[in-house]
Nucleic acid binder design. Structure first.
Lengths: 209, 209, 209, 209
DNA sequence: GATGAATGAGGGTTCATTCAT
DNA sequence: AATGAATGAACCCTCATTCAT
């Protein structure tokens, strides 16, 4: 996640002092607020600064330009998410494959659902960005973690871990995102979540039948 | 798909005459070109008109504003896509469930892959829009078609068609999109595609074991 | 009134044929409608043509440009008004001065009040124009008529007809216009009208006391 | 005068600091210049900003839109004018009625004549606006002042002050405006001014004869 | 370090006018 | 003669970014 973005998008300073940290957090939070309330097209530097309670000038001390701000915000979220996935994968090392899948779905689904609106806002904000780098960095980290986990599966080595990983990751991440975009009801969501788990388990079962 | 969008987004005139039709198509194509080359943030009315070989004024004769243009473009693509899905579903009526799933994945995957870059461009362009209406209209049409298809499955009635439909639709559409965003290699893509099919089949198999 | 305006403002053709006459009238009426409904800033050639039931092209056959249209419209109204004043002045020739004044106020006030909204709309529309020419032409015609009338006053020659004329014309026309702009109630209007007459009579009385 | 205009027309910031004050004044002056030189239809935001020596952006920091600028300009002038009328009325309290009228005509006429061209430009600029609010606010203030003055007239209470006020105000303001629109010569103007005074005095005389 | 007024390029949009049909 | 689609200059306005204080 901390892999080098285009120089233009790099944050200007690492907020080492606690005061800076507070400021940056306020800016991030303000960005999310504006995104939620008014949408991407109303995300102006002035408005963010205002809501964050700082001046535009100050904002530019921490982020070289608007894109960098949005970029950093998404980076932060993906960092957190990757961290959670890593934690889950660490915890599940050596467990049976089906349980791994359950855990992975749980982690991802929960992470996205906790602040559903924020997730949605971020999905939108990232569309303008040079997305790929961000996604790749996240994918790389997450894939490393899940691959390591799958490799450690209890009942012997998986034949083609990379293929398994690619498949499960794509299906899980993709399905969860799609669930968001469809705006499912609570009930539909829980049906889908259960069935997604079933499906993954069935696939794994079929692989080793 | 042709369900009423917010008035503000409605196209101004239906291009009935062939000359108009050509113009509108040129504008659509130009929009895609710009989206591909320069991204959403560079999609200006002037640039689109220029590339389409018409004046801005002409563009505004057909679209009341920029958003409406992007909206109409997406609408057109989703319309086509929904049409293809309906065709497939029609053709597969009464077939065995696994073959239905194969056909559905094929149709969707192919449709998205044919002009992969365009698909990617549209995914981005739609993020700024009032997405929901568009998605819902598409979902409604596609769901109706697939549900009808699943209901007609050869070997007896599916127990809960709606749940099955929700699951398969979410997984398939979601996975395909995720595949795009990850920017998979040709090979990875074909592995994923095969495995997605396997997974759906395994799920269906498990349901009726 | 028919004095030469700047060439640019001249109407393109005199509508001699009855068909043309109808068209021009429709355009004039449409212009007023739009002015009334939507105000000067919404007075577009397209809208006027639309409401008149003709094409823009046709409109341009009769008026070389938009300004000419507004100009002609005002000219027509001022022409009519001048005609009415001339009629009154003709009728009152040789009458006693106070009765002349009564008649003049009556004529002017009535003319403006009959279609009060139209009057108001025209007042506004003319502000954009090169007003002066129009006003001068009207003033010249009206002044000629009133001066002739005052000269013929029953009880002997007025000492300085031009001064009297200037005074009465300015006071009467000015007061009536001001009444419009203040948006007086029915009652206030009639009080004002009565008092204006009183005042003019008092002035005349004082002159010859 | 400072009564609430439609929100859309409100000035954005009150120029409290002296620098801002200078800027705003420059913008006002520039607006007048442009109005004088090129007329209302050439009054573009760019042109005004240019002549004022500021950027368009700066202009928009003080005025939310072009209309608001014109509105504020007229408001300022009417404010000043109302202030002058109030001053005169205050000074003339308890004086004989004819002197009051003299003073009122003097004040109004002088105010309008001092910068005659500006007055003319403003008369035109206001036609596009939602005039009424502005006029009413002015009228209310001016009427209050004159009514109070007339009430205090030396030789006993006027019978119907409101009617007197309505009459004198309408006649005076209307006549002065009409004088402008006719574009009188210096000499004609002074004749008219004298006669207007005579007329008002004659009217008052007749009232209390 | 922080501020926020000033900047001005550039965006979306309108509409008077033309001219091929 | 009539049409109305096409034109494109010009308008109003926004907002990322800078820099004097």
């Amino acid at each position: 996640m901390t892999s080098a973005p285009r120089t233009a998008l790099k944050a200007r300073k690492r907020p080492v002092q606690s005061r800076s940290r507070v400021t940056v957090d306020a800016i991030f939070e303000a960005t999310i607020q504006v995104l939620l309330r008014d949408g991407m097209s109303a995300l102006t530097t002035t408005r963010v600064a205002e809501r964050a309670g700082v001046s535009v000038g100050t904002m530019y001390q921490y982020f070289p330009n608007k894109q960098a701000l949005v970029y950093a915000l998404n980076e932060r979220f993906l960092d957190t998410l990757a961290g959670r996935i890593e934690a889950t994968c660490g915890r599940m090392k050596g467990a049976p494959l089906p349980e791994m899948v359950d855990a992975l779905i749980n982690t991802y689904w929960t992470a996205k659902t906790e602040r559903a609106e924020v997730t949605r806002a971020l999905y939108r904000s990232v569309a303008e960005l040079d997305n790929d780098e961000l996604m790749h960095a996240f994918a790389a980290r997450a894939d490393a973690a899940t691959t390591a986990m799958f490799t450690s599966a209890e009942n012997g080595a998986v034949e083609d871990v990379d293929a398994l990983n690619l498949t499960l990751a794509s299906v899980i991440y993709g399905t969860v995102r799609n669930a968001f975009e469809r705006g499912l009801t609570q009930e539909e969501a829980s049906v889908l979540r259960r069935n997604l788990t079933e499906m993954c388990r069935a696939y794994i079962g079929a692989l080793y039948a």
